[in-house]
Design a protein around this nucleic acid. Structure first.
Length: 121
DNA sequence: TTAGTGACTGCAT
DNA sequence: CATGCAGCCACTA
């Protein structure tokens, strides 16, 4: 019984962690779905992270959802038709540049948890 | 509780 | 590079 409760708790925490992590990504930097999934505790839940961004980005106005892109350094084009355009505009407004192929230099602007990440409880 | 779904990812072609 | 494909996982109805 406590097992079931623990599992449910973990799932809820995963979701909350994802939102929290996304909030940590600073302006001008980006993070990948897989990255967020990893730091949230489930390295292979990248797809699930994408789902969370898809289903509730409008409900979390404080979350910089546009700073989350795919591992190829590109903006995911699936789903909503207008969101990709808006996402690109928002990122470019922060100084993120995209190649003609729609790819940004992930190696240079990828966010990584620094000291304060571990200090915050 | 089960089955379907998708803003993903790494590897092969 | 661009596609295709199978594996993965949390969310939802």
């Amino acid at each position: 019984m406590s097992d079931t409760i623990d599992i449910m708790t973990e799932l809820e925490e995963f979701q909350d962690r994802v939102y929290w992590l996304v909030e940590q990504v600073p302006e001008g930097q980006v993070a990948t779905y897989g990255q967020i999934a990893t730091y949230a505790g489930s390295a292979r839940a990248a797809r699930a992270v994408g789902n969370l961004m898809r289903t509730s980005w409008t409900k979390h106005g404080e979350i910089p959802w546009w700073r989350i892109i795919n591992a190829a350094g590109k903006i995911s084009l699936k789903g909503d038709l207008h969101r990709p355009t808006l996402q690109k505009e928002l990122l470019e407004a922060e100084g993120v540049q995209f190649s003609a192929a729609g790819r940004c230099k992930l190696e240079e602007i990828r966010w990584s948890p620094d000291s304060d990440f571990w200090i915050i409880e």
